[in-house]
Write a protein that binds this DNA or RNA. Structure first.
Lengths: 254, 254
DNA sequence: CGACGGTTTGAGCACCTTCAAGGAATGTGG
DNA sequence: CCACATTCCTTGAAGGTGCTCAAACCGTCG
C-alpha cells in the first residue's frame, strides 16, 4: 500500500495516510490500561514505568513470533498488523487484522508465550508495554486486570465472528463482511468509511477469509461490475454500503 | 461401515458414562478461581459466597442465550455443552464444545452480556458463579482476575486453532483433528483416550467443523474402512491414533 | 530498461454440498 | 406392548462453488 499511495494525489488520500492514523498515547490502547489507574496527563510517571518508547516496524517486519517468550504487549499507534497461526506443515491462517489504537499480544497472558505471530503490513509504529512491569503495577491496581479481561473478551467476540464467517458464509458474504468491517472500523476512527486503503494483499485477504487469492480478485471484479465498489489496486471505494451490508448478512439472494 | 458395532454391550460403555465424568468442586473450573485465594478445603466460606448450588440441565436446555445479561459464570461438573453464535438470518456456527471441569461464559466479561449461547448436549450439571459476587471478592484478591485472564487466553488459543481448522484444513484433516482433540481431552481427564462417546450429533459435528452432516458420515465410514476407527453410533473407538494424528496434521497424503 | 511481486483473468476439475430416500434408534400415546 | 412419530444416521447421485494450474498484465524498483 505504501507504494500505491505515492502516485495518488495527496488531497485524495490525506484521510487515509498513516499519519492520519497516528494516535497519541492517550488515544491508543495503552490508555485503556492506564485509565483504571486514574492516570490523567499529569501522572505520566507510572505510565513511563510500563511503556517503553515506541518502535517503528517496516512492512513485513515481525512484532513477535509464535512460541517466543511473552515479554511485551503492543499498542498500535499507526499502521496495521496482521496476526496469524500456522499448521506444522506450513500453512498459515491469518487470525486478525489490527489497526491503530488496538492492543496486541494479550492472548499470550496464559501460556506466557505468544500463540500467534504478528507482522507489520505497512510502516507501523507501536508502543511496547513490558508485561513484568505491567504486572507489578497491576498488583497494586486491580482495575488493570479488569480492563485486560475486558479487552480479551472483545478479542474473543471478534474471533467468534471470524469463525462464523469461515464456517458458515459464502465467499461473497465473506468479502462483503470484510469490506463492511473495515468500513466500520475506519468510521469509528473518524476516517472515511467509503474510501480507504486496504493494507493487506489479495493473497492475505484470501487467507484471512478462507478463500483463494483468485476468488478474492474475481469477487472484487464482480462487485465492481455491479456498482457496489470501485477498486484501484488497494484503494477501495464503497459505492453502495447498504447493498453491501445486505450481502454480508446473507440477504444477497434471498 | 458394516453394522457390527451396533451390537455393542452396555457393559462396554461403563467407563464413558456421564457419572464417570462427574467432578468435585475442587476439580472443576471453580477451583481455578479459588486457588489464587489461597483457599483450601478449610475455607469454604468464601467459596460459598460466590458459588450458587449446582444446577442440572437436560439435553437441549440452555445455560444462557446470546445477548442475555451477563450474570453467571458456569463451571461444568458433568456432561457437556456446546456454545454457538448465529447470523441474523438464522445460520449458526458452533464455536465450542465444553466438557466437565471447564469454565463457560467468561467471554461476556467485557460486553456484560453473553455473546454466544450455550446448550447442554446431554444431562449436565454445572455450578453457577455469580459475577457480581465474584467481582466483590476479586476486588480484594487480585489473583482472581489474573486467573481469569489466563483462562480467557486459553479460550483465545482454542479459538485460533478452530479458525485454522475452518480456514485451512481439508474435511479429512478437520475430522481427524476433531477426534484427536477429543481423545486428548479425555486423556487429560483420566478417561479412555481410545474409546469414548461423542456427545454431539453428526449434524453438530458437521456444523462445528464447517462441514455438511453427510460429509461427516462419509468420512467416518471411510476412516472405519481404513481401520482407523470403529464407529457405533456415538461411541467411537480409535484404533490407530498415530495415523489419525498424521491425518490431522496434514501429513495424510504427503 | 528488465525483473519481480502483486494482480487479474481464463479453463478445467476436485471436493464437498445439496437433494433425495431409506434405515435404525428412541420416545410417545393408545 | 405395540404402532406411530420423531430424530438421527447412513448412503447414493448430481451439481456447484471455489480451487488449481497457467498465463498475461501492471506498477515498482533495482
Amino acid at each position: 500500500m505504501d507504494k500505491a499511495c505515492r502516485t495518488a494525489k495527496p488531497a485524495e488520500r490525506g484521510s487515509v495516510e498513516p499519519a492520519a492514523l497516528d494516535f497519541s498515547c492517550r488515544d491508543c490502547g495503552v490508555y485503556r490500561l492506564c485509565a483504571p489507574l486514574g492516570l490523567e496527563s499529569a501522572d505520566m510517571a507510572l505510565l513511563e514505568r510500563i511503556v517503553r518508547r515506541k518502535n517503528i516496524y517496516r512492512r513485513g517486519e515481525f512484532l513477535f513470533h509464535a512460541g517466543q517468550a511473552f515479554d511485551f504487549v503492543y499498542a498500535l499507534r499507526s499502521g496495521s498488523v496482521k496476526s496469524f497461526v500456522s499448521t506444522d506443515d506450513g500453512r498459515i491462517q491469518i487470525t486478525g487484522l489490527h489497526v491503530a489504537g488496538e492492543l496486541l499480544g494479550l492472548g499470550a497472558m496464559g501460556p506466557q508465550s505468544y500463540t500467534c505471530s504478528a507482522v507489520a503490513l505497512e510502516p507501523t509504529s507501536a508502543c511496547r508495554i513490558a508485561v513484568d512491569r505491567l504486572e507489578d503495577v497491576a498488583a497494586q491496581v486491580p482495575g488493570i486486570h479488569r480492563e485486560m479481561v475486558s479487552i480479551m473478551s472483545e478479542q474473543i467476540v471478534r474471533d467468534e465472528e471470524l469463525m462464523l464467517l469461515l464456517g458458515k458464509r459464502s465467499a461473497e458474504e465473506r468479502l462483503a463482511a470484510f469490506l463492511m468491517g473495515l468500513s466500520n472500523r475506519f468510521a469509528q476512527r473518524h476516517l472515511s468509511p467509503t474510501r480507504f486503503q486496504v493494507s493487506m494483499s489479495r493473497s492475505d485477504i484470501g487467507n484471512y477469509l478462507g478463500l483463494a487469492e483468485e476468488t478474492v480478485c474475481r469477487l472484487l471484479a464482480r462487485f465492481q461490475e455491479q456498482g457496489l465498489v470501485s477498486v484501484h489496486r488497494r484503494l477501495i471505494e464503497l459505492n453502495d454500503r447498504e447493498r453491501l451490508h445486505q450481502l454480508a448478512s446473507g440477504h444477497g439472494k434471498a
